[in-house]
Design a protein around this nucleic acid. Structure first.
Lengths: 237, 237
DNA sequence: GCCATGCTTCGACGGGGCCCGAAACGTCCG
DNA sequence: CGGACGTTTCGGGCCCCGTCGAAGCATGGC
């Protein structure tokens, strides 16, 4: 008896197989932010050679999980649609279930949930909170920096004009997978995060993507957002 | 303590790898009906030897995707929870549905499109229609059951309060991958579907996840939704 | 007790997929 | 036009994983 088989559902195995490889999973997770990333960046993020990443991207491509857009000598890849993102999120919800084994891992997990870099900008509770504060304070309106925002960012040492000229999107929202809310991405997000690290307000720790708020940073951010300016002129927009 | 990988993102790859094998995917899909099936039965359904199926089930087990309950010399496996069912459904939505080949398969496919169980609640045209009618009749408002809805469900024998206490979401929409519209899921969806089966209004058929509407069910549902209360002993609200 | 039945473990076999370095291809820039 | 850079293709090495038959444990019936 040949395996006579009953009613076909959509076969889920091939799709799952595409996600099953750790490197491809890393690539897809990196793309979860919604931004399109170049092949080289993805290779670096996933920790494999360009050749390997290229092979993976090729498979993801004709598996229909990612799209590609050619731009000059770069190829920017992004998730093929929101359904793909959904799959990844639902999968992540099941995958985290065997939660944490060692105390050490749980400490690291908490660190990452609190504050980490998402490629080159700040994510986690800290990242989401930062975006909230910028919006609430009227420093950021949609994707645009307000005059008040310009002043605030200048005090951080952020070169907003340079960020505006960058070839990537200026200030897109980047969806945070632990908080399920947006944090600040793009050129501006990277610039702000760079400034925060330069000022020593956040420092990188031993855990790969984790960053931690220093006492100096806590004070600095409080002063920055407190309305009370350290300097004289208070913006009265 | 070599290769102690540092706190990763929710690692979706291992879970995906469990689903990625065609045999395991077949097993999981078979379990999507919500019933617990014996290991031997699953082996036959998947078209592999008992030894092979056993190995797969073992991996699914400590991957946390299935539960097992021993009963005599049988071991009945079932999906570990509705989250797992969700993953499979979402995955199916992305997967390419291969075209139907044989007449027999097409008949079965039509059955499944008409009415089937989605893990433990009703899906297909019947499921979508049911949700529509509940909404249209003012029995369900968003995720909440209205007073009118309480009365209607009571007549079906559904214990709404029990469903409310369940640890899963009460009445979430579950996207139907054949209809591409929502049907009723969650604790309430399961309870209603259970009631419909208990009443004999729907019966399970030979095709794994398919259910069919009985004449009695047709009449019952018509009466239920017609505003006109059912025959004799029906206390008028 | 003893055998039948359901399921799991063991050992061995075969295939597919992941990885990289090197080289080819394309594009941008001086 | 030539050199630098990003990306893909090619070739080869390696390991993991799915598969089965046969033997080992359980359980239930008689």
């Amino acid at each position: 008896m040949a395996a006579e088989h009953v009613a076909r559902d959509a076969d889920i195995a091939p799709v799952a197989a595409l996600i099953a490889d750790p490197t491809r999973a890393a690539i897809l997770t990196a793309l979860l932010g919604g931004r399109a990333l170049a092949a080289g960046e993805l290779a670096r993020l996933a920790g494999v050679s360009a050749a390997t990443a290229s092979a993976h991207l090729s498979r993801l491509l004709d598996g229909g999980l990612v799209d590609v857009v050619r731009q000059g000598r770069h190829r920017y890849y992004r998730l093929a649609g929101h359904e793909v993102a959904e799959v990844l999120e639902v999968l992540a919800r099941v995958g985290t279930r065997p939660p944490v084994r060692s105390l050490r891992q749980s400490r690291q997990a908490r660190l990452l949930e609190e504050a980490r870099t998402c490629y080159d900008h700040l994510a986690g509770r800290a990242g989401v909170g930062l975006l909230d504060q910028l919006r609430a304070g009227g420093h950021l309106d949609g994707e645009e920096v307000t005059p008040a925002g310009e002043r605030l960012l200048a005090r951080l040492g952020v070169d907003v004009t340079a960020a505006r000229r960058a070839r990537r999107r200026f200030a897109p929202e980047c969806l945070d997978w632990t908080e399920r809310r947006a944090h600040l991405g793009g050129a501006l997000g990277a610039a702000v995060t760079g400034a925060l690290l330069d000022l020593g307000w956040y420092v990188r720790g031993p855990v790969p993507r984790a960053v931690t708020l220093t006492d100096e940073g806590r004070g600095g951010l409080a002063a920055l957002f407190s309305g009370k300016e350290l300097t004289s002129h208070t913006p009265v927009t």
